[in-house]
Design a binder for these strands. Structure first.
Lengths: 338, 338
DNA sequence: TTGAAAGCGCTAACAC
DNA sequence: GTGTTAGCGCTTTCAA
């Protein structure tokens, strides 16, 4: 459009394009002070803003990171995104986020679009899918990206081959779930129900597997929307269909909030009659009454690590950060009463 | 880099650049089926991904929206960002977010960088600053953007001149605060404390003004970090310094959560001894015990509207959507007891 | 120290 | 229908 560009500046300042560029692009190329002044002056007056598209085209770097998440407004993801912003901002990077809306089938297309935008770094934070075909296509796409000198970071995506040239932020969902389950078991709970999100998602499948490792086949698994309302609904069903259950474990804190709400509504004492656990330890987990026992994930920290790894990946090697999940025992769990 | 580009495709398919472009860019220009097939085939094989930078350079449109927020991980903002994604995704737009970290001084620079990225739409969701100089510079920058055929959406930014050519999503913070205050007053509360975020921010100043409109000069205003911990700390100070206070109103729900936590810790009954109110009505406000009375803002809806307006703005006119704040009375407020 | 010019990847006239 | 070519705005050789 009518946008002022380098040419405008160069003309008004009476210098060549090259000189204007050298002054304005922060090059350390020597330019006589007088000319430099003149260019700066004109640029300021005309409010010149360089065109990152043109620059990116030339340099092959966009100073942009693309982040694929399930849902930006879910505290689980927004916590990580916050961490990504923390280090991206300092490094002069822009952050572009895209929602899969928890529909892993959309991932391939999204990655494509992010690649089209020529992001330098791709962070995959949404849960993967337990489907080899899908994984295969994804790896192919990512590999092309990496071979282009770009950088990929996988957050909790162990389905991608171990030798794939990407950095990783790992956390062991299965282990974390086991810790939660052992905690419940230690309190005497034998009849436990899990309120689980979509089990096609690897992260969910892992968590459920962890619960089953400890609690065995007797475990009741109820699939639900990964939201407060999903937890609320599922809890209703559990109370009706499995009245002997003494503990309800959710695969996400929000679902646990819904569970707590339903129990409160039904007049069921927590943890007196039923214990409740969450997963992820989002900020509010501490504010329910009773406060939620949950598996803590350092979300913001994970985002930071991811972005740091991404940046480093641009320089060459990739690396791996392992995050220890940690059981946080609060008031929502207690010994079997009854 | 070694990226496959249009030229590669054209050569491998044995056609001209133009033909390849016509097939791959979704142009409706006629191309013989055989050639079209060949191009598509090669593109598929080589996993061709068009370069959005080059395209953007040419078309002057990037299919990207830039969003300026205080903090992506704050549910207030992430709710709006979620709404923005909802409509951006459908429209084929990418969303780039930037944090001001609630430091309005950073805004100018951020807008500049977003302009450099050549976003088509700029959504300003972070609170403005009550400072004419700052506003003036901001308007100048935004005006240049708009004159470039781009689109600006202001969310709750009434400091920007009424005749400024931008769309707006407005909500009346002051009125909302008045409604909260009237509710408290109606319950008999006379000694009220407000836990407020940074009052240099216009949104906060407006909210405090609304409280003062109703409750008068006797209102105790305590400034705090706009976080749970900020509320927690402020509440401690209020209990110590103003023991006669019977209601505590926060300018954000998270702060109210902190207040509730502190009161619980001190054994103060809510709402029996002290009533508590929040602001914004983030999802979790319903899950505290007692549930939080607060001024509801339809965050996601606001985000959607903003993006819709932004898209429409590209076509020319700008528009305005007024959002009605709405008092939601829950369990955290009650008549003065004592 | 400065300027002219090539070219990043792509689209849109314009010719054939 | 298809191909050639001129740029979009910028950086960076290469000459001067």
């Amino acid at each position: 459009m009518g946008s002022v560009n380098l040419k405008t500046i160069a003309e008004k300042a009476g210098v060549s394009l090259a000189t204007a560029s050298r002054v304005l692009s922060g090059s350390d190329y020597p330019v006589k002070d007088e000319l430099r002044e003149r260019v700066l002056q004109v640029a300021q007056e005309l409010d010149y803003v360089p065109n990152a598209n043109a620059r990116g085209l030339l340099r092959g770097r966009s100073q942009t990171v693309g982040v694929l998440v399930g849902d930006v407004s879910d505290p689980f993801f927004s916590g990580m995104i916050g961490g990504i912003h923390d280090v991206a901002g300092k490094a002069g990077y822009m952050v572009t986020t895209v929602n899969t809306y928890r529909e892993p089938g959309a991932e391939l297309d999204i990655v494509r679009r992010l690649r089209a935008q020529r992001v330098d770094i791709l962070i995959l934070a949404a849960s993967g899918l337990a489907d080899p075909i899908h994984t295969e296509s994804m790896q192919r796409s990512l590999r092309a990206f990496v071979e282009d000198g770009k950088s990929v970071v996988l957050i909790g995506r162990h389905e991608v081959a171990g030798d794939f040239p990407a950095s990783r932020v790992e956390f062991d969902n299965r282990l974390a779930a086991r810790e939660v389950a052992e905690h419940l078991q230690g309190l005497g709970h034998r009849e436990v129900a899990v309120v689980a999100g979509n089990s096609r998602l690897l992260s969910i499948a892992d968590r459920v597997a962890g619960f089953r490792d400890v609690l065995g086949e007797s475990l009741v698994v109820v699939e639900a929307e990964p939201t407060r309302d999903g937890g609320y609904e599922a809890c209703g069903a559990i109370l009706d269909d499995h009245p002997r259950v003494t503990a309800i474990a959710a695969t996400a804190d929000q679902m646990a909030f819904g569970v707590l709400a339903r129990l409160r509504e039904r007049g069921v004492q927590v943890p007196g009659q039923v214990s409740v656990t969450g997963f992820n330890d989002i900020a509010f987990a501490v504010d329910t009454v009773p406060a939620l026992t949950t598996a803590h994930l350092p979300l913001r920290e994970m985002g930071r690590s991811a972005m740091e790894l991404g940046l480093r990946g641009l320089e060459g090697g990739h690396d791996r950060v392992d995050t220890k999940p940690q059981l946080v025992v609060r008031g929502s769990t207690g010994p079997v009463g009854r």
